[in-house]
C-alpha cells in the first residue's frame, strides 16, 4: 500500500465541489472526525438529512446562530440518533405517499461518535437496524468521549490512557479490548456495512455512496483520529489513520449481504508500535504490552483473512447472481 495517496489516483475536479460541512466550524485543529464528516457529506450530496447524536460533531457544528450544516440537520439527544432517523425516514415515506413532501430520494444519515453508538446509543441503533429503516448510520469513532474530556468508552482500545482509565503505577490504562462494534452491527444482517477512514478519502466516499444507494439499513464505521484525545501532533490525523490501517489495527473491509471482503489484504503490515508511538495515550506502554497488542492485532487480522476467504468461496448471494 502506498505510503501517501498518490496524485495519479486522485483527480479533485471529479469530486463534488460542494462543502456541505461549512468552514468556520469549531472543531479542534487537525480534527480527523470533522474531516471524515466533510468527505462523507461530499459523497452524500445536498439531498441529505443528518440526524446527529450529542457529541463533538454536534457541539462544534451548531452553536447558535452559527451552523456548519448546509443540509437539513436535527439534533435531539445523545442515545437516540438512530431512533430519530427512524422517524425521519418513516415520516418522509408517508408524506411522500400523501404527496406532502418533495419527490425523489432523500438520503437519511444518522451520525454518532463511538460513545453515542457503541455505548449509550447501541439499543436505538440495534432497533433501527432490525426494523429495516432505509438509512445509513455513520459511527465516527475516535475511541473515547472526547467532547466531555477524553473519557474511555467501550470503543477505547486496550492500553489507552484516558481520564477515567488513566495510566499509573498500578494501571496500564484501558484494561479491556475495543468492542467490535462493526461485527455487532453485522449480526443484524445488513445489506451493506463498511469500515473506513478519512485517510482514504476516495474509499470513504465510495463506501458512503454505496451505503446510501443500498436500500435498507447500512452502516459505516469510520476511524476518526483525534489529536486532542489521542495526543498526537495536530498535523498527524491523516497519518494516524493511515498507520492504523497499514498496521492492521483498523482493517478496512466491507460486508455485503453477509460476505466480508477485505479491501486490501496486507500480508506484510507495519508493526503496531509505529501506530502507537506518536500517540500520547499509549506513551506509557512498555515492550511487553506493545507485544501483547501486536498479538491481538495479528490474531484478529488472521481471523478476518480467514473469514474473507471462506466468504469468497461461499455460494453467491442474490445480488451476486
Amino acid at each position: 500500500m502506498a505510503e501517501k495517496t498518490q496524485s495519479a489516483e486522485f483527480i479533485p475536479r471529479l469530486l463534488p465541489p460542494w462543502e456541505l460541512l461549512a468552514e468556520g466550524h469549531r472543531g479542534c485543529q487537525g480534527c480527523g472526525e470533522a474531516l471524515a464528516l466533510r468527505q462523507i457529506l461530499k459523497a452524500a450530496g445536498p439531498d441529505t438529512i443528518v440526524c446527529s447524536a450529542t457529541g463533538c460533531m454536534e457541539i462544534i457544528t451548531s452553536p447558535y446562530p452559527e451552523t456548519a450544516w448546509r443540509i437539513p440537520w436535527i439534533h435531539v439527544a445523545f442515545e437516540n440518533a438512530a431512533a430519530v432517523a427512524s422517524g425521519v425516514e418513516a415520516g418522509i415515506k408517508i408524506l411522500q405517499k400523501h404527496g406532502r413532501y418533495r419527490e425523489g430520494k432523500v438520503n437519511i444519515i444518522a451520525i454518532g461518535g463511538d460513545g453515542g453508538t457503541a455505548d449509550i446509543g447501541l439499543q436505538a441503533l440495534s432497533g433501527a437496524l432490525e426494523r429495516r429503516h432505509d438509512f445509513t448510520y455513520v459511527c465516527t469513532d475516535n475511541e473515547a468521549y472526547m467532547n466531555t474530556g477524553i473519557q474511555r468508552s467501550s470503543a477505547t482500545p486496550f492500553g489507552a490512557s484516558t481520564t477515567p482509565s488513566p495510566a499509573g503505577k498500578e494501571s496500564i490504562g484501558q484494561r479491556t479490548e475495543k468492542k467490535d462494534l462493526p461485527m455487532i452491527v453485522a449480526a443484524h444482517n445488513l445489506p451493506y456495512l463498511a469500515t473506513a477512514c478519512p485517510s482514504y478519502p476516495l474509499d470513504l466516499m465510495n463506501k458512503t455512496r454505496r451505503a446510501l444507494s443500498t436500500e435498507g439499513p447500512t452502516y459505516l464505521h469510520v476511524l476518526s483520529p483525534c489529536p486532542t484525545g489521542w495526543r498526537h501532533p495536530i498535523d498527524m490525523a491523516v497519518e494516524m489513520g493511515r498507520l492504523a490501517v497499514e498496521s492492521g489495527v483498523f482493517p478496512l473491509y466491507e460486508i455485503i449481504d453477509g460476505k466480508l471482503r477485505l479491501n486490501v489484504e496486507m500480508n506484510k503490515r507495519r508493526p503496531v508500535a509505529e501506530y502507537l508511538k506518536p500517540q500520547g495515550r499509549f506513551r506509557h506502554l512498555g515492550p511487553e504490552q506493545i507485544e501483547e497488542i501486536q498479538r491481538f492485532v495479528n490474531e484478529y487480522y488472521d481471523r478476518l483473512i480467514y473469514r474473507s476467504q471462506c466468504d469468497a468461496e461461499a455460494p453467491p448471494t442474490p445480488h451476486e447472481e
Binding site: 438529512i49 440526524c51 436535527i74 435531539v76 439527544a77 442515545e79 437516540n80 438512530a82 431512533a83 430519530v84 432517523a85 427512524s86 422517524g87 425521519v88 425516514e89 418513516a90 415520516g91 418522509i92 415515506k93 408517508i94 408524506l95 405517499k97 400523501h98 406532502r100 413532501y101 439499543q123 436505538a124 440495534s126 432497533g127 433501527a128 432490525e130 426494523r131
Partner: peptide, 27 residues
C-alpha cells in the same frame, strides 16, 4: 394510512416521534 413504527423502547418511541414530526407528519 399511516406509518406505524413499533420501536424498541419508549425513549426511542418519543425520539422517532421527534423525527416524524420534524419532517411535518402528524404524529
Amino acid at each position: 394510512d399511516a406509518e406505524f413504527v413499533m420501536v424498541e423502547s419508549e425513549h426511542s418511541a418519543m425520539s422517532a416521534c421527534c423525527g416524524t414530526s420534524a419532517v411535518g407528519a402528524r404524529t
